[in-house]
Design a protein around this nucleic acid. Structure first.
Length: 723
DNA sequence: CATAGCGGGTTTTTT
DNA sequence: ACCCGCTATG
């Protein structure tokens, strides 16, 4: 029977098609809410529908909603979905990543924490340049102290909201690091620059330290929703906590099985501690999966169930089992790539789009072999991540002109600009200019115009500086006059002499660089079309906060290649995960049990991206950096997948016992291709052998990537058995 | 001051 | 295999 409508009309729209826990989450009123959302359980739907409901039913002003997503792309998608539900009111909603939300706050209130509003954002390469200078100041040899590790320590400290003066000092090393940290921070400030961690840290400092500002934002944000909460770090946690007061309308959505960023300071404990901070929190679990086949889901569950430290839960689906998972042993990475091409062929035969196919791997370097094969097979593809477009030297060099025009204190960009192209000014001249700038209390860039007054410069150096001064001045005045950004990029390209430099070079490489920079001009034009209030600094900011995952093109009819980290939050009909091998996945650098668990969660994330078909490959040999071939063992995660879920090469491939490779049969007398082979670690090496009556007959013994023995003797199985 | 050539490190994942 | 920084040389 159909009784009278119990809800107003919008309810049928917002609640139709939702399962009971999803409805509960959407209908939740005020107060803290924790949604434990398994993979593919429709959390984005819950988030968007809940926001729509807050606006429509609870009369919450769109401008008082802050929705935090993991990537800019996810934010854009959320906006798009919300637009369908609440129309143009979506414009007032803050949907952003933690970092971009912080920038937005800081662009307004940075003066409260000692920064100007036009501060620069330093990416990894800018940081590296700056930290090198700090090491230089401290007279520390960068070969003895790795600048990257120092940055790692500093980053860890910042994520825990610890300043240089709050660090524990237990050793000379600690003291050294703290001194560097101090210098680094001072230099950042002098540059009017923040690194990624500062964006979070200073925002927390701002909000916790300044009552007026704090109340302003607390007043403003009445509802806070955070996605991917399992991957928040301490600074982000504190940010949510302070913004959530006093209303405490905080909704967090996450899955402790999908925490894969602990190396970046993320703490899965945040999700578990939510109930401690908000004892009155409502907790809702979403366990029905709408994405994958039963077989894929079962495999994912089985793998992650091997993690001892987790909230037990089991995703389920009513979609039916679907086809088996395929585990394919390959001879090497080229054959792995052929498996990918084979799957592409199969998709084409089935009339499916190439956009439905994704290839995942543990490390970016693995994309190469697949790319080579796809090129040969004329298969269109996109690679997400890897060598970054915006971090290419020529792009950064050109951007340096624009950055310096916005922020004259940016010495890192100044240093780039000075040497590209070469104009006869080197370190010596810069030191003199810098001394003058300090003396006059001028930003380095502004001192350029006074080149005539700087002591000890030769005429060509003066000319070089003056030329630079006028380029920067021109960019700056055009920017003030709101000349379109693409015109500014073009201006910098021409007037800096970079185009002339590359044209004079004439090499194919220089041609490529010119194309890259022309692409940057087009990016500027595209930004002008899209941005609501375009500005040069807005453009630079977007670039700084741009993430690889933002570039994923889901409709372009091409195969998508990316690391599993980048695949978070995405889904594809067909997924191939390559390199399912010990020491690669799980990665060899994952040594502790905790790290192994994180690798396993990563595996879980990868598997659960697949809707319909999942192929896992591993290679017997693989070459790493052009060097010799390494013999490989299949990933332990493969053995954690239930045998009945696996088709293709069959269960043999799921254990450490697999058919003898045919190339081994050739060299081992008395062995047949059907014999079972065992891969095992033995001492520091990797053994490939054949089991015969409890004894391992050695076929190969590899150590340090080199083959030490080919066929020889035997060893008791017990000694060899380990992985 | 700029360049070419060499040696060393690099590959885990990234907002 | 490649990228990067350092050094010797012009």
């Amino acid at each position: 029977m159909s009784g009278p409508l119990r809800y107003p009309r919008w309810v049928s729209v917002l609640l139709s098609g939702l399962n009971p826990p999803q409805r509960d989450a959407v209908l939740h009123d005020d107060g803290p809410l924790l949604v434990l959302a398994g993979a593919g359980s429709g959390k984005t739907r819950v988030l968007t529908h809940r926001i729509a409901r807050l606006i429509d039913e609870r009369d919450v002003a769109p401008g008082s909603i802050l929705a935090i997503t993991f990537t800019n792309k996810a934010a854009a998608e959320m906006r798009q979905r919300l637009e369908g539900l609440v129309g143009p009111r979506v414009r007032a909603i803050w949907a952003a990543t933690f970092h971009s939300a912080c920038v937005r706050i800081l662009r307004r209130d940075a003066p409260h924490v000692g920064y100007e509003r036009n501060f620069a954002i330093f990416d990894a390469s800018d940081q590296l340049r700056l930290i090198r200078r700090c090491l230089e100041d401290e007279d520390i040899d960068p070969k003895r102290v790795d600048p990257r590790s120092v940055l790692g320590w500093i980053s860890d400290a910042k994520n825990r909201l610890l300043g240089p003066s709050e660090m524990d000092i237990d050793s000379f090393r600690d003291e050294q690091v703290v001194r560097i940290y101090n210098r680094y921070q001072n230099r950042l400030l002098a540059n009017q620059a923040m690194d990624f961690d500062d964006l979070l840290r200073l925002t927390v400092q701002l909000l916790e330290g300044d009552a007026e500002v704090r109340e302003h934002y607390q007043e403003r944000f009445r509802h806070i929703l955070v996605d991917e909460y399992q991957d928040t770090n301490h600074a982000q946690y504190r940010l949510v906590r302070v913004l959530g007061e006093p209303q405490r309308n905080v909704m967090v959505v996450g899955d402790d099985d999908q925490g894969i960023y602990s190396w970046r300071g993320a703490d899965v404990a945040n999700i578990l501690d939510f109930e401690r901070d908000y004892p009155d929190a409502t907790v809702i679990a979403l366990e029905q999966n709408y994405r994958s086949t039963g077989t894929i889901l079962k495999a994912a569950n089985a793998v992650v169930a091997h993690n001892p430290n987790r909230h037990p839960k089991a995703l389920w689906t009513d979609r039916g089992d679907g086809g088996p998972i395929e585990i394919i042993e390959c001879r090497d990475e080229r054959e792995e790539a052929r498996v990918v091409v084979g799957e592409v062929q199969r998709a084409v035969d089935d009339g499916d789009s190439l956009s439905d196919i994704a290839v995942f791997y543990r490390t970016n370097a693995q994309s190469r072999a697949v790319e080579d094969m796809l090129v040969r097979a004329a298969v269109p593809y996109q690679v997400i991540g890897g060598p970054k477009y915006y971090e290419r030297a020529e792009v950064k060099d050109l951007l340096a002109y624009l950055r310096v025009a916005v922020n004259p204190n940016d010495e890192v960009s100044f240093g780039r600009m000075i040497t590209s192209p070469k104009r006869g000014v080197g370190p010596g001249a810069v030191t003199r200019l810098s001394a003058y700038a300090v003396e006059m209390g001028l930003p380095l860039t502004d001192a350029l115009a006074d080149a005539d007054r700087v002591e000890g410069l030769n005429p060509s150096q003066r000319r070089g500086f003056s030329a630079l001064a006028s380029v920067v001045a021109e960019i700056r005045s055009h920017a003030r006059a709101d000349v379109p950004v693409d015109r500014l990029v073009e201006l910098a390209f021409e007037e800096s002499g970079m185009r002339a430099m590359f044209e004079a070079d004439g090499s194919a490489e220089a041609e490529g660089r010119i194309e890259n920079l022309e692409e940057l001009v087009r990016t500027g034009a595209e930004y002008m079309n899209r941005a609501e209030e375009p500005s040069l600094s807005g453009f630079l900011e977007e670039i700084a906060l741009y993430a690889d995952a933002d570039a994923v093109d889901t409709g372009g009819g091409q195969v998508t290649l990316m690391t599993i980290h980048n695949a978070k939050g995405l889904e594809f009909d067909r997924v191939v995960i390559i390199g399912m091998e010990q020491n690669l996945f799980p990665h060899s650098r994952s040594e502790t049990p905790e790290q192994l668990e994180e690798e396993r969660r990563l595996c879980y994330v990868g598997i659960t991206r697949a809707r319909r078909r999942l192929i896992l490959t591993h290679a017997r040999t693989r070459s790493f950096f052009g060097g010799g071939r390494d013999y490989r063992m299949p990933s332990q995660f493969l053995a954690e997948i239930p045998e009945e879920s696996v088709g293709g090469m069959g269960p043999a491939a799921t254990s450490r016992h697999r058919p003898l490779p045919s190339d081994a049969a050739d060299v081992v007398p008395g062995l047949a291709t059907g014999d079972e082979v065992v891969h095992a670690t033995f001492g520091e090496g990797v053994v490939t052998g054949v089991e015969q009556g409890g004894t391992l007959v050695l076929v190969r013994f590899i150590r340090d990537g080199r083959e030490r023995r080919l066929i020889a003797g035997a060893a008791p199985m017990r000694k060899a058995a380990s992985s």
